[in-house]
């Protein structure tokens, strides 16, 4: 049997919803294994800085990590698909591809090169369109807009002349407050709320077109994983699926509660991008997508598989549509 206790370095503080997933999964694995497997979840920076978790797990410096998959897109470009895919399928459809389609196969193949076993155990709901201090009435309002956002979504905004920037987490508040940047996209409302951005910005836009679902996972060094018996590995899977169900069922209502609390602040408004803006964004996304597919064959293959799978689910719901 494998180690009784493994160190899990979380990339999120466990007091927020994203990091709480690691602790929830720790409880599940403890139950499933009848107390024979235990997680010791470490806060970000406690063992290693958040952005070093993948490398540390890969080289065996730490046993396991709890991450947002998009963090490692600088190492594995395919992960842009799992972390933040613009105009992608809903969390439900994405989860179906992950667990009843080929989703895990593609990502595990990429992780094999790094001696890592990946368990995608947590999907967050759609993120938001971000906090802004000026109105966005058409895609041309993104021209010259200084906005904090990463990944493929940033490349979409670049098409309209936005200056997309990386501002370190601790400086976002100040940068937004003083106008060093005009807006920022951070996370889901539940997490955004505690950052206090609603105190210093005017608009909170929806939908989060740049990230329709995003995956969080448990990554384990394969040498550690191999020590567990087949039965124990199955227990990990069970705990993982239970955590996935928890993330999908518990989070949507929480987002609406968080938004309601934020809206109490005067001068802060929740808005939707208008249809023309969204159409233009989608058009630009299709250009970025074509570029990405041309240069990144593993992304292309996975993307096509995902969209084909999502189409089945859309078809089913269309057929069952009541009105």
């Amino acid at each position: 049997d494998g180690p009784k206790s493994i160190d899990v370095a979380s990339t999120f503080a466990t007091n927020n919803f994203l990091g709480a997933g690691a602790q929830y999964m720790g409880k599940q694995i403890n139950v499933a294994s009848d107390g024979k497997i235990k997680f010791r979840v470490h806060e970000p920076g406690d063992l290693v800085p958040a952005f070093e978790v993948f490398n540390a797990v890969s080289t065996g410096a730490i046993d396991a990590g709890w991450d947002w998959m998009g963090y490692w897109a600088g190492t594995i470009p395919l992960l842009n698909l799992y972390g933040a895919l613009p105009f992608g399928p809903s969390p439900e459809a994405f989860a179906s591809w992950m667990w009843a389609g080929d989703g895990q196969k593609f990502v595990q193949a990429a992780y094999d090169d790094y001696n890592i076993k990946v368990l995608p155990c947590f999907v967050s709901p759609q993120e938001t369109g971000g906090f802004y201090n000026k109105e966005i009435n058409s895609a041309s309002d993104f021209d010259g807009l200084r906005f904090r956002i990463s990944g493929l979504g940033a490349r979409v905004l670049n098409k309209f002349g936005a200056s997309t920037q990386l501002v370190p987490g601790g400086e976002i508040f100040l940068a937004l407050e003083r106008g060093r940047i005009d807006g920022a996209e951070f996370s889901v409302p539940q997490v955004d709320e505690v950052m206090g951005f609603n105190d210093i910005t005017k608009y909170y836009y929806f939908p989060g077109w740049h990230q329709s679902a995003s995956w969080f996972s448990l990554i384990i060094n394969k040498d550690v994983w191999a020590k567990y018996s087949e039965k124990q590995q199955q227990q990990f899977q069970t705990a993982c699926q239970s955590t996935l169900a928890w993330s999908m069922t518990s989070s949507p209502p929480e987002q609406m509660r968080a938004i309601a609390r934020m809206e109490k602040k005067e001068g802060f408004e929740v808005r939707r991008f208008n249809d023309e803006t969204l159409t233009e964004l989608e058009g630009a996304w299709n250009e970025v997508l074509a570029e990405e597919m041309a240069t990144n064959p593993s992304f292309k293959e996975a993307y096509e598989s995902l969209m084909a799978h999502a189409k089945l689910i859309d078809g089913w719901y269309d057929l069952q549509e009541l009105k």
Binding site: E52, N55, A56, S58, T59, A61, G70, Y71, A73, G74, T75, I76, D113, Y114, S150, G151, A154, R155, N158, T164, Q165, L166
Partner: peptide, 15 residues
Amino acid sequence: QVMMSFNSGEQSNFG
């Protein structure tokens, strides 16, 4: 970790 970064071609995720 240096070698891993080299082999994977690790780069910025912000362009």
